[in-house]
Protein backbone atom coordinates (compact mmCIF):
# COMPACT_ATOMS: atom_id res chain seq x y z
CA UNK A 1 0.00 0.00 0.00
CA UNK A 2 2.71 2.39 1.04
CA UNK A 3 4.92 1.54 -1.88
CA UNK A 4 2.04 2.00 -4.29
CA UNK A 5 1.37 5.42 -2.93
CA UNK A 6 5.02 6.33 -3.31
CA UNK A 7 4.99 5.07 -6.84
CA UNK A 8 1.99 7.24 -7.54
CA UNK A 9 3.64 10.29 -6.09
CA UNK A 10 6.68 9.61 -8.19
CA UNK A 11 4.56 9.36 -11.32
CA UNK A 12 2.89 12.60 -10.48
CA UNK A 13 6.20 14.31 -9.91
CA UNK A 14 7.47 12.99 -13.19
CA UNK A 15 4.44 14.38 -14.95
CA UNK A 16 4.69 17.70 -13.21
CA UNK A 17 8.39 18.13 -13.55
CA UNK A 18 8.56 18.98 -17.22
CA UNK A 19 5.99 21.69 -16.66
CA UNK A 20 7.93 23.16 -13.80
CA UNK A 21 11.35 23.05 -15.32
CA UNK A 22 10.62 23.34 -19.00
CA UNK A 23 9.66 26.44 -20.90
CA UNK A 24 6.24 27.09 -22.31
CA UNK A 25 7.55 26.90 -25.84
CA UNK A 26 11.00 26.04 -27.14
CA UNK A 27 12.55 26.04 -30.60
CA UNK A 28 15.80 24.20 -31.19
CA UNK A 29 17.58 24.45 -34.53
CA UNK A 30 14.35 25.05 -36.36
CA UNK A 31 14.53 25.45 -40.13
CA UNK A 32 12.17 25.79 -43.06
CA UNK A 33 12.55 25.99 -46.80
CA UNK A 34 10.09 26.83 -49.54
CA UNK A 35 11.24 24.67 -52.41
CA UNK A 36 14.82 25.72 -52.95
CA UNK A 37 14.52 28.93 -50.93
CA UNK A 38 15.84 28.54 -47.41
CA UNK A 39 13.65 30.88 -45.40
CA UNK A 40 14.84 29.87 -41.94
CA UNK A 41 17.74 27.86 -40.56
CA UNK A 42 18.93 26.80 -37.13
CA UNK A 43 16.81 29.10 -35.00
CA UNK A 44 16.69 28.68 -31.19
CA UNK A 45 14.10 30.47 -29.14
CA UNK A 46 12.32 30.22 -25.80
CA UNK A 47 8.97 31.62 -24.75
CA UNK A 48 7.97 31.85 -21.08
CA UNK A 49 4.67 32.75 -19.46
CA UNK A 50 4.46 36.41 -18.51
CA UNK A 51 7.40 37.31 -20.73
CA UNK A 52 7.66 39.10 -24.06
CA UNK A 53 10.02 37.56 -26.60
CA UNK A 54 10.79 39.93 -29.45
CA UNK A 55 11.79 38.72 -32.90
CA UNK A 56 13.58 41.41 -34.86
CA UNK A 57 14.83 41.47 -38.40
CA UNK A 58 14.66 43.27 -41.70
CA UNK A 59 12.19 42.43 -44.46
CA UNK A 60 12.75 38.89 -45.67
CA UNK A 61 14.68 37.91 -42.55
CA UNK A 62 12.28 35.04 -41.92
CA UNK A 63 10.21 36.51 -39.10
CA UNK A 64 6.88 35.65 -40.65
CA UNK A 65 8.07 32.18 -41.55
CA UNK A 66 9.11 31.60 -37.95
CA UNK A 67 5.79 32.60 -36.48
CA UNK A 68 3.81 30.77 -39.15
CA UNK A 69 5.52 27.60 -37.95
CA UNK A 70 4.57 28.36 -34.37
CA UNK A 71 1.01 29.25 -35.39
CA UNK A 72 0.48 26.08 -37.41
CA UNK A 73 0.24 27.72 -40.84
CA UNK A 74 3.47 26.05 -41.95
CA UNK A 75 5.42 23.07 -40.63
CA UNK A 76 9.15 23.21 -39.94
CA UNK A 77 11.31 20.69 -41.74
CA UNK A 78 14.39 20.92 -39.51
CA UNK A 79 14.97 21.02 -35.78
CA UNK A 80 12.59 20.67 -32.87
CA UNK A 81 9.58 22.66 -31.75
CA UNK A 82 8.29 21.76 -28.32
CA UNK A 83 5.37 22.90 -26.25
CA UNK A 84 5.46 22.22 -22.50
CA UNK A 85 8.54 20.12 -23.11
CA UNK A 86 7.14 17.74 -25.67
CA UNK A 87 7.99 17.95 -29.36
CA UNK A 88 5.14 18.77 -31.72
CA UNK A 89 4.35 19.67 -35.30
CA UNK A 90 1.20 21.75 -35.67
CA UNK A 91 -0.85 20.71 -38.65
CA UNK A 92 -3.21 23.70 -38.83
CA UNK A 93 -4.02 26.98 -37.10
CA UNK A 94 -6.98 25.18 -35.50
CA UNK A 95 -4.63 22.67 -33.87
CA UNK A 96 -2.38 25.51 -32.72
CA UNK A 97 -5.35 27.35 -31.25
CA UNK A 98 -6.45 24.25 -29.40
CA UNK A 99 -2.92 24.01 -28.01
CA UNK A 100 -3.23 27.57 -26.75
CA UNK A 101 -1.25 29.33 -29.46
CA UNK A 102 -3.00 32.31 -30.97
CA UNK A 103 -1.61 34.52 -33.70
CA UNK A 104 -2.53 38.05 -34.62
CA UNK A 105 -1.44 38.86 -38.14
CA UNK A 106 -0.89 42.30 -39.50
CA UNK A 107 -3.17 41.97 -42.50
CA UNK A 108 -5.12 38.85 -41.88
CA UNK A 109 -6.22 39.30 -38.33
CA UNK A 110 -9.82 40.08 -39.16
CA UNK A 111 -12.50 40.03 -41.86
CA UNK A 112 -13.04 43.75 -42.54
CA UNK A 113 -16.67 43.67 -43.64
CA UNK A 114 -17.88 41.65 -40.66
CA UNK A 115 -19.11 43.28 -37.44
CA UNK A 116 -16.68 43.52 -34.55
CA UNK A 117 -18.49 40.96 -32.42
CA UNK A 118 -18.64 38.43 -35.23
CA UNK A 119 -14.92 38.85 -35.78
CA UNK A 120 -14.27 38.51 -32.09
CA UNK A 121 -15.95 35.11 -31.96
CA UNK A 122 -15.15 33.93 -35.49
CA UNK A 123 -14.25 30.27 -35.47
CA UNK A 124 -15.25 29.92 -31.82
CA UNK A 125 -18.86 31.05 -31.89
CA UNK A 126 -21.12 30.68 -28.86
CA UNK A 127 -24.40 28.91 -29.46
CA UNK A 128 -27.57 28.07 -27.58
CA UNK A 129 -30.12 25.36 -28.23
CA UNK A 130 -29.60 21.93 -29.68
CA UNK A 131 -29.79 20.15 -33.01
CA UNK A 132 -31.51 22.00 -35.81
CA UNK A 133 -32.41 24.88 -33.53
CA UNK A 134 -28.88 25.51 -32.41
CA UNK A 135 -28.28 29.17 -32.98
CA UNK A 136 -25.75 31.84 -32.27
CA UNK A 137 -26.02 33.43 -28.87
CA UNK A 138 -25.85 36.88 -30.39
CA UNK A 139 -26.60 38.94 -27.29
CA UNK A 140 -24.08 37.11 -25.17
CA UNK A 141 -21.37 37.42 -27.80
CA UNK A 142 -22.04 41.15 -28.17
CA UNK A 143 -21.96 41.62 -24.40
CA UNK A 144 -18.73 39.69 -23.96
CA UNK A 145 -17.09 41.51 -26.85
CA UNK A 146 -18.00 44.86 -25.35
CA UNK A 147 -16.85 43.77 -21.90
CA UNK A 148 -13.56 42.26 -23.00
CA UNK A 149 -12.72 45.26 -25.11
CA UNK A 150 -13.49 47.69 -22.34
CA UNK A 151 -11.36 45.57 -19.97
CA UNK A 152 -8.56 46.13 -22.42
CA UNK A 153 -9.30 49.82 -22.36
CA UNK A 154 -10.98 49.98 -25.77
CA UNK A 155 -14.26 51.80 -25.52
CA UNK A 156 -16.44 51.14 -28.54
CA UNK A 157 -19.90 52.50 -28.96
CA UNK A 158 -21.11 49.87 -31.31
CA UNK A 159 -19.79 46.32 -31.64
CA UNK A 160 -22.09 45.92 -34.65
CA UNK A 161 -20.01 48.13 -36.92
CA UNK A 162 -17.76 46.45 -39.50
CA UNK A 163 -14.32 45.96 -38.03
CA UNK A 164 -12.84 47.48 -41.19
CA UNK A 165 -14.04 50.85 -39.94
CA UNK A 166 -11.75 50.68 -36.92
CA UNK A 167 -8.29 52.15 -37.01
CA UNK A 168 -5.39 49.78 -37.56
CA UNK A 169 -4.40 49.97 -33.90
CA UNK A 170 -7.90 49.24 -32.69
CA UNK A 171 -8.15 46.26 -35.01
CA UNK A 172 -4.94 44.82 -33.60
CA UNK A 173 -6.30 45.37 -30.11
CA UNK A 174 -9.54 43.55 -30.88
CA UNK A 175 -7.49 40.63 -32.16
CA UNK A 176 -5.33 40.68 -29.02
CA UNK A 177 -8.37 40.86 -26.75
CA UNK A 178 -9.85 37.94 -28.64
CA UNK A 179 -6.74 35.81 -28.13
CA UNK A 180 -6.64 36.68 -24.43
CA UNK A 181 -10.32 35.88 -23.99
CA UNK A 182 -10.02 32.49 -25.66
CA UNK A 183 -7.38 31.46 -23.17
CA UNK A 184 -4.30 31.68 -25.33
CA UNK A 185 -1.09 30.77 -23.51
CA UNK A 186 1.12 31.97 -26.32
CA UNK A 187 0.24 35.13 -28.20
CA UNK A 188 2.02 35.83 -31.48
CA UNK A 189 1.93 39.31 -32.95
CA UNK A 190 3.30 39.77 -36.46
CA UNK A 191 4.43 43.36 -36.93
CA UNK A 192 1.39 44.79 -35.16
CA UNK A 193 2.88 48.28 -35.20
CA UNK A 194 4.33 48.29 -38.72
CA UNK A 195 1.53 50.24 -40.37
CA UNK A 196 0.70 52.42 -37.38
CA UNK A 197 1.54 55.94 -36.35
CA UNK A 198 3.37 56.68 -33.12
CA UNK A 199 0.31 57.17 -30.96
CA UNK A 200 -1.41 54.01 -32.14
CA UNK A 201 1.77 52.00 -31.87
CA UNK A 202 1.91 53.08 -28.25
CA UNK A 203 -1.64 51.83 -27.75
CA UNK A 204 -0.77 48.44 -29.21
CA UNK A 205 2.38 48.19 -27.08
CA UNK A 206 0.25 48.84 -24.03
CA UNK A 207 -1.96 45.86 -24.91
CA UNK A 208 1.10 43.71 -25.36
CA UNK A 209 2.06 44.52 -21.79
CA UNK A 210 -1.48 43.84 -20.59
CA UNK A 211 -1.44 40.44 -22.25
CA UNK A 212 1.95 39.77 -20.64
CA UNK A 213 0.63 40.78 -17.22
CA UNK A 214 -2.18 38.29 -17.64
CA UNK A 215 0.47 35.59 -17.81
CA UNK A 216 0.64 35.00 -21.55
CA UNK A 217 3.89 34.27 -23.29
CA UNK A 218 4.03 36.94 -25.98
CA UNK A 219 6.02 36.70 -29.21
CA UNK A 220 6.32 40.17 -30.66
CA UNK A 221 7.59 40.44 -34.22
CA UNK A 222 8.83 43.81 -35.40
CA UNK A 223 11.55 45.44 -37.39
CA UNK A 224 11.55 48.42 -35.07
CA UNK A 225 13.93 48.07 -32.08
CA UNK A 226 12.37 51.15 -30.50
CA UNK A 227 9.08 49.30 -30.29
CA UNK A 228 10.66 46.06 -29.15
CA UNK A 229 12.99 47.29 -26.45
CA UNK A 230 10.54 48.94 -24.04
CA UNK A 231 8.25 45.90 -23.87
CA UNK A 232 10.59 42.97 -24.53
CA UNK A 233 12.25 40.61 -22.06
CA UNK A 234 14.38 38.84 -24.64
CA UNK A 235 15.34 39.61 -28.21
CA UNK A 236 15.95 37.26 -31.10
CA UNK A 237 17.64 38.87 -34.09
CA UNK A 238 17.16 37.30 -37.48
CA UNK A 239 18.97 38.04 -40.69
CA UNK A 240 18.52 36.19 -43.95
CA UNK A 241 16.88 33.30 -42.18
CA UNK A 242 19.58 32.89 -39.53
CA UNK A 243 19.76 33.91 -35.93
CA UNK A 244 22.42 36.60 -35.45
CA UNK A 245 21.89 37.03 -31.73
CA UNK A 246 19.64 36.15 -28.84
CA UNK A 247 19.77 38.47 -25.83
CA UNK A 248 17.95 39.03 -22.61
CA UNK A 249 17.14 42.63 -21.81
CA UNK A 250 19.95 42.95 -19.25
CA UNK A 251 22.49 41.96 -21.88
CA UNK A 252 21.75 44.66 -24.40
CA UNK A 253 20.82 48.34 -24.73
CA UNK A 254 18.43 49.78 -27.26
CA UNK A 255 21.34 51.43 -29.08
CA UNK A 256 23.15 48.14 -29.37
CA UNK A 257 19.98 46.47 -30.51
CA UNK A 258 19.47 49.08 -33.21
CA UNK A 259 23.04 48.81 -34.33
CA UNK A 260 22.95 45.01 -34.35
CA UNK A 261 19.85 45.02 -36.44
CA UNK A 262 20.91 47.40 -39.12
CA UNK A 263 24.60 46.55 -39.12
CA UNK A 264 27.15 49.36 -39.15
CA UNK A 265 28.09 48.96 -42.78
CA UNK A 266 24.50 49.21 -43.89
CA UNK A 267 23.93 52.33 -41.87
CA UNK A 268 27.00 53.93 -43.36
CA UNK A 269 25.69 53.05 -46.78
CA UNK A 270 22.33 54.50 -45.88
CA UNK A 271 24.01 57.70 -44.76
CA UNK A 272 25.81 57.86 -48.05
CA UNK A 273 22.58 57.45 -49.99
CA UNK A 274 20.94 60.19 -48.00
CA UNK A 275 23.92 62.45 -48.52
CA UNK A 276 23.62 62.04 -52.26
CA UNK A 277 19.96 63.00 -52.19
CA UNK A 278 20.89 66.07 -50.20
CA UNK A 279 18.90 68.33 -47.89
CA UNK A 280 17.99 65.82 -45.18
CA UNK A 281 20.48 66.85 -42.51
CA UNK A 282 18.53 65.61 -39.52
CA UNK A 283 18.07 62.10 -40.87
CA UNK A 284 21.64 62.02 -42.04
CA UNK A 285 22.93 62.85 -38.59
CA UNK A 286 20.78 60.09 -37.16
CA UNK A 287 22.08 57.48 -39.57
CA UNK A 288 25.65 58.53 -38.99
CA UNK A 289 25.17 58.38 -35.25
CA UNK A 290 23.86 54.86 -35.68
CA UNK A 291 26.87 53.86 -37.72
CA UNK A 292 29.19 55.34 -35.12
CA UNK A 293 27.51 53.60 -32.22
CA UNK A 294 27.90 50.36 -34.13
CA UNK A 295 31.63 51.04 -34.49
CA UNK A 296 32.00 51.66 -30.76
CA UNK A 297 29.67 48.86 -29.61
Amino acid sequence: MKTRKNKKTEDLLEKLEPKISDNLLTLKGVGKHYGSIIALRGVDMVVDPGKVTCVLGDNGAGKSTLIKIIAGLHQHDEGEFSLHGSAIKLKSPRVALDAGIAAVYQDLAVVPLMPIWRNFFLGSELTTGVGLFKKLDVQKMKDITKQELSDMGIDLRDVEQPIGQLSGGERQCVAIARAVYFGAKVLILDEPTAALGVKQSGVVLRYILQARDRGLGVIFITHNPHHAYPVGDSFLLLKRGRSIGYYSKSEITVEELTAQMAGGAELAELAHELEQLGGHDEELAEAEAGANSQATA
Partner: peptide, 11 residues
Protein backbone atom coordinates in the same frame (compact mmCIF):
# COMPACT_ATOMS: atom_id res chain seq x y z
CA UNK B 1 -14.63 38.27 -46.80
CA UNK B 2 -11.11 37.09 -46.13
CA UNK B 3 -10.36 33.44 -46.66
CA UNK B 4 -6.89 33.60 -45.10
CA UNK B 5 -8.10 35.36 -41.98
CA UNK B 6 -10.91 32.85 -41.68
CA UNK B 7 -8.51 29.95 -41.91
CA UNK B 8 -6.15 31.55 -39.42
CA UNK B 9 -8.85 31.73 -36.74
CA UNK B 10 -9.88 28.13 -37.31
CA UNK B 11 -12.86 28.40 -39.67
Amino acid sequence: GDEKAARAVGV
